[in-house]
Design a protein around this nucleic acid. Sequence first.
RNA 1: GCCGAAGUGGCGGAACGGUAGACGCAGCGGAUUCAAAAUCCGCCGUACGAAAGUACGUGAGGGUUCGAGUCCCUCCUUCGGUACCA
Length: 909
Amino acid sequence: MDSERDAPHPYDPAVVEPKWQHVWEEQKTFRAVRRPGHPKMYVLDMFPYPSGAGLHVGHPEGYTATDIIARYKRMRGFDVLHPMGWDAFGLPAEQYAIKTGVHPRAITLKNIDNFRRQLKMLGFSYDWDREVDTTDAGYVKWTQWIFLQLFKRGLAFQQSDMPVNWCPQLGTVLANDEVTADGRSEVGGFPIEKLRIRQWSLRITQYADRLLEGLEGLDWPETKVKQAHWIGRSEGANVEFAVDGHAGETITVFTTRVDTLAGATYVVLAPEHALAQKICKADHVVAVKAYADIANAKSDIVRSDASREKTGVPTGSFAINPINGDKVPVFVADYVIGSYGSGAVMAVPAHDERDHAFALKYGLPIIRVVDDAKADAKVVDVEKEAFTDDGVASEAAVTRSRAPITKGMPSEQVRRVVTDWLASQPGVGGKGAGSSKITYKLRDWVFSRQRYWGEPIPIFFPVECEGDPRVPGAPFTIRYDQPIPVDESELPLVLPDLEDFKPGTDPAGPLARAADWRFFQRDGKWFARETNTMPQWAGSCWYYLRYLDPKNAVSGWTSEDYDAWMPVDLYVGGSEHAVLHLLYARFWHKVLYDLGLVKGDEPFTKLVHQGLILGTSYRYFRALEGDKRLLAGSAKVLRPTDPPSIRLAETKELVEELWAREDEIAIRDNKTFHAALGVEVMLVAEKMSKSRGNVVNPDDIVKSHGADALRLYEMFMGPLEAVKPWQTSAIEGVRRFLDRTWNVCTNVSDAAASDETRRLVHKTIEKVGEDIEHMRFNTAISAMMILVRHLGALAGGTPRESAKALALLVSPFAPHIGEELWERLGSKTLLAYEPWPEFDAALVKDDVVEIGVQVNGKARGSVQIAVDADEETAKAAALGDARVRTFTDGKTIKKVIYVKGRILNLIVG
RNA sequence: GCCGAAGUGGCGGAACGGUAGACGCAGCGGAUUCAAAAUCCGCCGUACGAAAGUACGUGAGGGUUCGAGUCCCUCCUUCGGUACCA
């Protein structure tokens, strides 16, 4: 063996990285301690669900970003709280348990061990003493305790006959938020149907306004818009339509366009509306019933397809439009949703697209009551299409209305006038014929799951029975109408062990089978525990509070700790949680605030979503007909209804998609080819998936390139928030940077740095610091690359001071190599709390700069010039440039624009 | 349809309204080597040109400006979210 040839690489992350991880762990380097007089920083990651698959490359993206901030802020003298934990209740563990018979707890603990190992391998500076696990009894205790506070305030309540999203495959109810737009479960993608069962709900609607208003002060991205949209506040009016011939019955409709009331020519009820059957004329009952049955069988999803043709049936009854006394027909149609507003609408075909489509189909009158206020607008023919904008009251609006509307009155004003007038009218029951009303799209949060692996709901009920209800077959009745909270001293209420975790057919859930756990006797009476469990979101609603004092058995957190660390200063996680977790957590926090248990009413001051990391694969095709030859990859393919029948857009050829991996391709003449097959391929970036073979495993990358290289690469790929494709070849670049950094810092000299070197070091200090503050990690890394190139080119080694500065700068990004170099540069103490280097403002500012010279706005050269040179000097210097002169010679300079240190623009003519 | 984000070399991406393409990947050329790997140096938007250079160039079209990738208007495309919500 030739020892020189096989000489070990001087920088070996496999040695350096475990060494420092061990030191940090031994010394508890990152234990969060609050010192008086120091600023604080609470840097929070969205904690992961510990899946069996382990970390994917998306996790380290956000975690590295927060780690850079945490490490940087420590060096800046901040007390930093940077914790990690596990959101460990959830369906995957339970489903794995059902398949294998292994207890979900065992699976969960194993997965947590693997996640912890992987996170430690990446060198994140978490305070591991604060690790939390939402499934731990010491944690569940406080989740249940918060539930009891909600229950005592009337914010947790039961609904006995609630239409819920029932997923037969999962055997559970899902919240609206857990159902995808196309009517499938978010977990598993199974179809959902409507079922009416008893459910626990949380009254989040009571907080709708505050959840909306609270968004204003938050430093959050577009997520705020999404939450606002989800809450869906809309201002309008309820209007009472008396039913002709049914004394005392009124149909309440909700509208945001009460200004169009005079144009209402019919009324529509949702099929499930209570009055639909009641007011129906005898000869219409059968048809209405049949229509409602069909509509109920359709899922919300099918019903909510707006492009579907409008259908409906008449009830034969008429309602009276309060503004003019007109009798208008009442229909039942499934384009009206029972659960929004009042489940009934007034139909104004002239000014609403859905009503227009329906009116055309059933030949109902269309009456224009709003004219376009814009004089130059082309006039919309309301017989042909609806005019949906605000405008001014039309002639018909005046003549068809008893309310004091005048022609030309703006819609906004008409709404106020009509609402006031309706309120003054005697309505049914003397309450007025209408009033202003605010509705929300936000619904109460269905909070129970018919599942095993979740927090038991700490409630029990009296049981009516003869003898022992635990005896199989014994009759009993549970009085669900008399819920009793478990005494706080009895918390946590832990899950019983089960042999079989399957949901089964009993909507009470698998816990109903644990009879010894479910039923208990007190003072000779039998009681039954609630057998539903909480949804997965429960644990993540307050985990940021538990980190404050994770082992406290007496309270969930303390106000001292709250004052010390809260609110969360920076929260980083995926945008998929924009409306679910982030809305629920804000809701709980506001409840806790009202209870005086926390001080601020918003938990997360600044929020950042890291962008998705896509996998890279290369597409080509094989013809499925004829010679089955290989075809070049193309973006233009037709994907008709039938998935396998992909055709090329140009030739209409039937093809099969094939995928090459990054390591199988070669590049010639700026085109990508499959190296072995020679066929041209096209780069496609999409979500990593096993079927594409483009999944990247962090363990492999750490093995091949090191944790520091992985961290650095993920930060160098592009802006944190951007969606970015993974390219393994590009890691080589940051790995080379680390090698060079190593070489530069292990080849030092004690000679003083040159002026040029010192200037560059200080500029880099300034740039990297600013970029970290703004979370522009990619450009910070590029600045350090420039510095390393410069230092590497110096004859006689790197000045020691420059090398030390570099080690400090690189350390938040690549902490292992940072510590190692810091030690090798002669330090006896850890780098982690070393002060961030200060830059010298005088060195950062250049005396002489190169500025661009333009002639008539076009770049024609550049000149070296003192940074504060006056215009005359700059002009003279520019005219000293031969190339510039070729554009100015023989012409007069009519104007000079000079921006010091930036640009000189000569306008000639 | 509506809301949000974004369109810049072969690729990832840089650019306080001021010399577009920093930094990196890939590619090409060179040094080193017996050779290779690694490393180091150089080149690297398009067209014309031997070169100097000139023209063009940030999705399309218009506008504001001494000057526009950046600001304004219209449109196209992609991605994310969302929808009979009255």
